[in-house]
Design a protein around this nucleic acid. Structure first.
Lengths: 244, 244
DNA sequence: ATCTTCGTAAATGTATTCATTTTGGGAGGA
DNA sequence: TCCTCCCAAAATGAATACATTTACGAAGAT
């Protein structure tokens, strides 16, 4: 229980387990026993149970039919489909925003984030960290533009799944030069997306949002093998959720 | 704790609370206190906590920022968006099934369910109950046709939200004659959907699945006021989830 | 040899007690 | 009057003891 994350035993346990799951230290299918975990983390069973229940809410664990918890298996195909689903849902958000007319304040916020994203390319060096943060903000704003609490909530949920976050691949960097170009294209799509929403072009906005996730899928394939490789385990400890 | 549902205190508590939430007896925003509930249901705080945690997973409760649970508010707009979201996700499932080629066994199962749905119209009387059950099966199969565990899981989740189920409106019956006709149209859409998947027509399959949820939205508006009425409370006790 | 049965150990379910945090109101002062 | 501080009550967090269920293997019968 090293991590100082969280203010009580439950949250610390939750943080430790989340990190270990996302880092691949606990492979998919691993069953987690309350007593063993409680001893290992030096807390009682109660906060362990509580933490595991919350990790089920996050989608990282699942309950066994007769009690007990197990780490969810995230196979390559699952991850690719998660990214696809994010594209579909963000597409719905963009379409709704265009059709219903987006909240002016939220739109202004989106413009501001766009400017900040541009600033990341200003110098010779690309500021990847700033881009990751602003990118996250942009996608969160997109969810809000639709004015649908349900959609916003479900999108947040998807973003916590492994590689479900819009900025999930930014920590990898790849070849900096090529990567910078990829991000430039992405930023162009951001601008087109906001323009489409402003012009009330629902179908265009939806198509753009869907296409926008393709690089993420491609990056994933490049990093972790093509198609239907075995469950992934290597360093997935990235882009931790905002709160527990 | 009347209900004999479930085999232990946790599941019974969960069932009781779920029923009361869906029935509108606990309006959105109502805070649920562990001690009060434990006394009312004559169990200890432990199973109450556990049951509430599981209801958060189902999406019926939410956690307060500083602990505690509250009933989620389901406004008219939220419900309409939930139905829309189901359409979008089923659209993705149909498209994937068409693009990737659906599992033959699952397709055969779908054909069998289609036949059973037809049978509900055989006599002069429409068998609404049988239709509701078969309809649920059909939509579950649709989720499986896509061959995506992630999508299947998220669709299941949507189906447990209030009015998120494909058969959510069948218990209402409305005017039997008109309703029969609506169902006939729906059944025609089912057939077209399967045909589109068989012919690998992804875009058509997606469009059909999306359109297929419109009657549900319309029914909801007719039953609970148009547009942006206040939170709904009247009898939403219908279509209980399969398991706890 | 294999299948059933039964017992034991392990794991989860529940209750109870104690600890900590949060909340709300009232006393006191500016 | 209003603001602040502080205390008490209430609510959640955590630990522990006990109960029940499940899993697994060994012993015995067929």
């Amino acid at each position: 229980m090293d991590a100082a994350t969280g203010r009580n035993h439950t949250m610390r346990t939750q943080a430790v387990l989340r990190r270990q799951i996302l880092a691949g230290e606990l492979p998919g299918g691993t069953r987690l026993y309350e007593v063993a975990l409680a001893e290992r983390l030096d807390v009682s069973r109660t906060p362990v149970r509580e933490a595991m229940a919350r990790l089920v809410e996050e989608g990282l664990l699942e309950r066994g039919p007769k009690g007990g918890f197990a780490v969810r298996a995230f196979e390559t195909a699952d991850v690719l489909d998660t990214i696809e689903l994010r594209g579909v849902m963000e597409g719905m958000a963009a379409r709704l925003a265009a059709e219903r007319g987006a909240d002016p304040a939220a739109l202004a916020g989106a413009q501001e984030v766009l400017a900040r994203l541009d600033a990341c390319f200003a110098g010779d060096e690309t500021d990847f960290d700033a881009y990751a943060e602003a990118n996250r903000e942009f996608h969160a704003l997109l969810a809000r533009l639709a004015g649908s609490a349900t959609l916003e909530r479900e999108l947040e949920r998807i973003a916590r799944l492994p590689f479900g976050s819009p900025s999930a691949f930014l920590p990898f960097r790849m070849q900096a030069g090529e990567f910078r170009d990829i991000l430039r294209v992405g930023q162009h799509e951001h601008r087109m997306l906001v323009e489409a929403i402003l012009r009330r072009q629902g179908a265009r906005a939806e198509a753009l949002a869907r296409e926008h996730v393709r690089p993420a899928q491609e990056n994933f394939r490049r990093l972790f093998g093509r198609g239907d490789a075995p469950p992934l385990s290597p360093a997935m400890a990235l882009d931790p959720p905002a709160a527990g």
